[in-house]
Design a protein around this nucleic acid. Structure first.
Lengths: 195, 195
DNA sequence: GTCTATACCCCGATAGAC
DNA sequence: GTCTATCGGGGTATAGAC
């Protein structure tokens, strides 16, 4: 799968995929070497700290980038539309994003302060940008931020339940109904506040 | 910590605690034996399938029981109050519940169909009971269920962000504001619908 | 830079004594 | 029912040739 040349880069990418699927603890250095088409000795040439060193860089690579979901949302004309479109966008890429987040949540206790800080920065930046999008409909920064957290948490939590925990296989998932109701209650709040 | 006698029970409890803290893959059979004050041979006497057999029973033991959070909520007099009180109740036990859920999410792919079904059953039952509590304020089953999912997802997702991913250490957590806004938008929806 | 070869440890698991 | 003792294998890591 990886192009030859720049073995170091391949190792990071391949490791993050393996960690995503099997978790860090269940992935061996031999398995990584095999998947990267080299020996374990080569791994130790590129990563002095061994498996932990690979983890640190794989984390950077695996962090989900949420910003692209917000870019196309600058032309919305109502809060209802904004919530609906963000939900639909995250839905479409939900599986991949959640498998990245799932892995980070598992490995979080093993990460150093720098990696944790980077992840926090990503989340906070996303929330800030989402708040910027919501604010025009509320005319109140504090409420915009609360609504942005509600959107973020709901979509995240819903994905954890129905995708990560596979609930969609046991229970008819209320997808459309869920999104619409979420958009509706938020939009109602906006109308009440801005008029 | 565990009382002597009934080694088998101790093994399950101790294992689920170790799995919770370190994950299944990172916990060895020897570590379990040591913590349980016996040898690995004793483990294999009680669990024919070895480590996997212990996992199966530890999962049952670790599943969070959400029902107690709903019991005291039958005397609420408004939807606003219901949301606020549920949020506050889950908050107080959030850490412990989330560490259980986190473990189950990690190990979910390794579980057999029976264990998955049991977990799904717990979630669905909680949602159903929560819907029962919400329904009187909406007079519409479908909307009550959507609102119940929104409550569940939001609280769950919020906990994942601020507790499991430690965001509370990097960002002033909007706890009170978050809960109040959530309660408000849901209560507004209820009033709009039931009148 | 990447390999071969290997050290050393801990893993899960089991046989057989008590 | 629990122990001692041990096996085969795979785990991380490294020395040294090319």
């Amino acid at each position: 799968m990886p192009s030859n040349h720049d073995l170091r880069d391949d190792i990071v990418k391949i490791s993050s995929e393996l960690f995503m699927r099997q978790s860090y603890a269940a992935t061996s250095i031999k398995q990584i070497a095999k998947a990267a088409g080299c020996t374990t000795a080569a791994l130790y040439y590129h990563f002095e700290d061994g498996k932990e060193g690979i983890l640190r860089e794989a984390v950077d690579y695996a962090m989900p980038d949420l910003q692209p979901f917000l870019e196309p949302l600058h032309d919305t004309s109502s809060l209802y539309e904004l919530v609906m479109r963000l939900a639909q966008a995250t839905w479409e890429h939900g599986r991949e994003m959640l498998s990245r987040t799932r892995w980070l949540m598992v490995e979080f206790p093993n990460l150093g302060p720098e990696e944790r800080a980077k992840l926090h920065e990503k989340i906070i930046q996303f929330h800030k940008n989402l708040s910027d999008l919501v604010e025009p409909y509320l005319n109140n920064r504090q409420e915009a931020e609360a609504i942005a957290w509600i959107q973020y948490s709901s979509l995240f939590g819903y994905g954890q339940l129905f995708i990560t925990l596979g609930l969609a296989h046991a229970y008819d998932p209320p997808d459309a109904n869920y999104i619409q109701t979420l958009a509706e209650i938020i939009a109602d709040f906006g109308e009440k506040r801005s008029i």
